[in-house]
C-alpha cells in the first residue's frame, strides 16, 4: 500500500515506530526460541573438534542406529504412502456411508500423544496384550524388535500423506477420472495418467513430512523398542542414551544428523509449496472435508 498524499501511512500498524518495534521484538524472540537451539546443536556437536564428531558418527552403535532409522523409514514411508493414496481415492472419488467417520479416524493419530500410541501397541503385542501370548508361543517377536518400531512409526504418521491428498483431490473432483474411464481407460491407467500427475507435488509433500516424522519419532518408539543398544535403538533413542551417558558432544553429533534432515525437509517444503502443495491454512483434514460435504447441495 502506498502512502496517502498527506504522507501518512495508509494501513494499520504501518507507522515506523510500530513497524520497527514489532519486527525487532519478533526477530528477537524468534532468535531466542528457534535460532538459538539450532546453533547450540551444531556448536555442541563440534565442541570437541571435527575428529571427535567423526569418531561418534563412525562408532558402531551410532552407525547401527542410523541404519535402523533408515530401514524403518524405508518400510514405514512407502506403506504409509500406499495407504494415503488408497484412503484419498476411496474418500474423494466415492460416496459411502460412514465416510466422515473414516476421515476423522484417519486423523486420530495426529492428536494422540506418542507415548499413548506406544502404550497401546504394548497391549496388542506385549506379553500382557491381546496377541502377546499367542505370538510368544509361535516365537514371533514384534515388540522390542524391528516390527514393533515400524508399526509404532506407522501409527504416528498414518494421517500424513492422506491429509495432504484428501483436500486436494476433493477440490479437483471426479470429472477427469470419469472422463478417462468412460473413454475406456482402466482404473490403473486412469490413476497413473490422470490422477497422479495432478497430485504429485502434494503427494511428495506428504511423503517428505512423513519421512521426517518417522525418522525423528521418539515417544512411541521409545515405548515399543526396549532401547537395546546396538539392536533396537533408532537414532532419536540413541541420542537420548548418549545424552544420559553424559556424552553430550556425542549426543549432539548424532542429533546434528537429524537436524540436517530437518533443514532439508524445510527446504523441500518451501520448494514444494512453490509448486502449490500444502495449502497452509489447512492444519486438519477433517474440518475442510466435512465443511465441503456439508455445503454440497
Amino acid at each position: 500500500m502506498s502512502a496517502s498524499p498527506s504522507g501518512k501511512p495508509s494501513r494499520v500498524g504501518d507507522t515506523p515506530l510500530v513497524r520497527r518495534t514489532l519486527i525487532t521484538l519478533v526477530l528477537l524472540v524468534g532468535a531466542v526460541l528457534v535460532l538459538a537451539p539450532l546453533i547450540v546443536i551444531f556448536a555442541q556437536a563440534f565442541s570437541l573438534g571435527v575428529g571427535a564428531f567423526a569418531a561418534t558418527i563412525a562408532e558402531p552403535d551410532t552407525r547401527h542406529a542410523i541404519m535402523l532409522t533408515v530401514i524403518v523409514a524405508l518400510i514405514a514411508v512407502p506403506v504409509n504412502t500406499a495407504f494415503g493414496l488408497a484412503a484419498a481415492w476411496a474418500v474423494t472419488k466415492f460416496d459411502f456411508p460412514g465416510k466422515r467417520l473414516l476421515i476423522v479416524i484417519i486423523e486420530i493419530p495426529f492428536s494422540i500423544s506418542p507415548v499413548v500410541a506406544g502404550v497401546a501397541y504394548l497391549f496388542v503385542y506385549g506379553l500382557q496384550g491381546v496377541f502377546g501370548p499367542a505370538l510368544a508361543d509361535a516365537n514371533i517377536q514384534i515388540l522390542f524388535a524391528l516390527p514393533g518400531i515400524v508399526l509404532a512409526s506407522m501409527f504416528v504418521t498414518a494421517p500424513f500423506v492422506a491429509r495432504e491428498l484428501i483436500p486436494l483431490m476433493q477440490a479437483q473432483g471426479r470429472d477427469l477420472e470419469e472422463a478417462a474411464t468412460s473413454l475406456g481407460a482402466s482404473g490403473w491407467r486412469t490413476f497413473w495418467s490422470v490422477t497422479l500427475p495432478n497430485i504429485r507435488w502434494a503427494l511428495l509433500y506428504g511423503v517428505v513430512l512423513c519421512n521426517a516424522r518417522v525418522m525423528g519419532e521418539f515417544g512411541a518408539v521409545s515405548v515399543v523398542s526396549g532401547n537395546i543398544r546396538g539392536q533396537t535403538n533408532t537414532l532419536p533413542l540413541h541420542i537420548e542414551l548418549l545424552y544420559h551417558d553424559y556424552q553430550t558432544a556425542g549426543a549432539f553429533a548424532a542429533a546434528s544428523i537429524l537436524t540436517v534432515l530437518a533443514l532439508v525437509t524445510i527446504v523441500a517444503k518451501v520448494l514444494l509449496e512453490r509448486q502449490g502443495a500444502g495449502r497452509r491454512s489447512r492444519v486438519s483434514v477433517a474440518a475442510p472435508v466435512l465443511l465441503a460435504e456439508g455445503q454440497r447441495p
Binding site: L38, G216, P236, I239, A255, L258
Partner: peptide
C-alpha cells in the same frame, strides 16, 4: 517457523 515441526522432539529436548 516450521523448524519445531521438522526437528525431532528429542533433538529439540537436548538443545
Amino acid at each position: 517457523v516450521d523448524l519445531p515441526f521438522a526437528l525431532p522432539t528429542a533433538v529439540a529436548g537436548i538443545a
